[in-house]
Computed example of a mutant assay.
Amino acid sequence: MADSTSSLLMQAFAVIGILFISIKLLSFVRVLLSLFVLPGISLSKFGGPETWAIVTGASDGIGKEYSLQLASKGYNVFLVSRTQSKLEALRSEIEKKYAVKTKVYAMDFTQNRDSDFAFLKKTIADLDVAILINNVGLSHDIPVPFASTSEKEMRDIITVNCMGTLRVTQLVAPQMVQRRKGLILTMASFGGILPTPLLATYSGSKAFLQQWSTALSSELAPHNVHVQLVQSYLVTSAMSKIKRSSATIPNPEQFVRAALRKIGRSGGAQGIKATSTPYWSHGLMHWALATFTGTMNGIVVDQNRKMHEAIRKRALRKMEREGKKVE
């Protein structure tokens, strides 16, 4: 009797093990298909000639690439960012390369001025806005313990990443609902899925965007408006302070190309509604973390803390060498 029970238990465990492995293998196959094989939704579904794409944080890095690549697809582009001279330079570049219209507006999102949003609302009222790229974002100057974070830095990060994104989207979404199509794409960060000590305020702001985008996608889906949060790990940019690309760290052009090709595909963000991790190395990393450790795992969080403590020490030493004030 004991031998029979033991045999049944072994068989049960074997079946469970086979099912577990099969599920993980199936998930991995889905990731590979999503990242490397299956196409995303064509941008032409959202608009065509004479329709507009609004890009916030447009003048540098990823935002600049979204502007250029959408213009190359025939979209008129409305560029919103802080620095007028950079916006004018980008406008000139786009108009020389592509037969599209451009508008620019210099706006400091840290100020959260009602007059800025009122101007945007008035300006876009007569535009057929097909795409909104919520790219504007702000992080900490260097990794910093939360208790030592200045009030201004905390306020600016939340104001830009959260309020700025929400207020612009609230201006654009009603028009998309009325026209019954559109794309709202919001840039996120692994800081929103991996709690990031020493970048706690930034990490929290990006986690907020995850929850908000998922909820918004459900609200707008009945109106045929597609909402997607785009996750990224490291990309060469002024914000990441990484200057050289590699096999696993794309430049903005490579990253944006992947993001626009994979609209509607989850990439590495398997099972997370309205979310995509489209660049291949980021997608594989996201899938592996979620599958084998969990993004809230204590060991993962502690390793993240140690990494950012080391980054902070290097940054402080550099500031000391350059004679800059150390907070």
Score class of each variant (00 low, 15 high):
Ser7Tyr: 12
Gln11Lys: 03
Leu19Ser: 11
Leu25Val: 15
Ser27Thr: 08
Arg30Ala: 03
Phe46Pro: 03
Ser59Asp: 08
Leu68Tyr: 09
Gln69Arg: 09
Ala71Glu: 02
Ser72Met: 08
Leu79Asn: 09
Thr83Lys: 13
Gln84Cys: 05
Ser85Ile: 08
Ser85Asn: 13
Lys86Ala: 07
Ala89Phe: 09
Arg91Ser: 15
Glu95Thr: 15
Thr102Glu: 10
Ala106Gly: 10
Asn112Asp: 15
Asp116Lys: 05
Ala118Pro: 00
Ala125Arg: 15
Ala125Gln: 13
Gly137Phe: 06
Gly137Tyr: 04
Ser139Gln: 00
Asp141Glu: 15
Val144Gly: 00
Pro145Lys: 10
Glu151Gln: 12
Ile158Arg: 03
Thr159Lys: 08
Thr165Gln: 14
Thr165Glu: 07
Val172Met: 07
Val177Ser: 00
Val177Arg: 14
Lys181Arg: 15
Ser189Asp: 03
Ser189Thr: 05
Pro195Cys: 08
Leu198Val: 07
Ala200Leu: 06
Lys206Ala: 03
Gln210Tyr: 15
Gln210Arg: 13
Gln211Ala: 15
Leu216Asn: 09
Ser218Cys: 10
Glu219Asn: 08
Val230Asn: 01
Leu234Met: 14
Thr236Gln: 05
Ser237Arg: 01
Val256Glu: 00
Arg257Thr: 12
Ala258Ser: 13
Lys262Ala: 15
Lys262Asn: 14
Ile263Arg: 01
Ser266Ile: 00
Gly267Thr: 10
Gly267Glu: 01
Thr275Leu: 05
Pro278His: 04
Trp280His: 04
His282Thr: 11
Met285His: 07
Trp287Lys: 02
Ala290Ile: 01
Phe292Trp: 10
Thr295Pro: 03
Val300Met: 07
Asn304Phe: 06
His308Trp: 10
Ala310Gly: 05
Arg312Thr: 06
Arg317Gln: 12
Arg321Met: 12
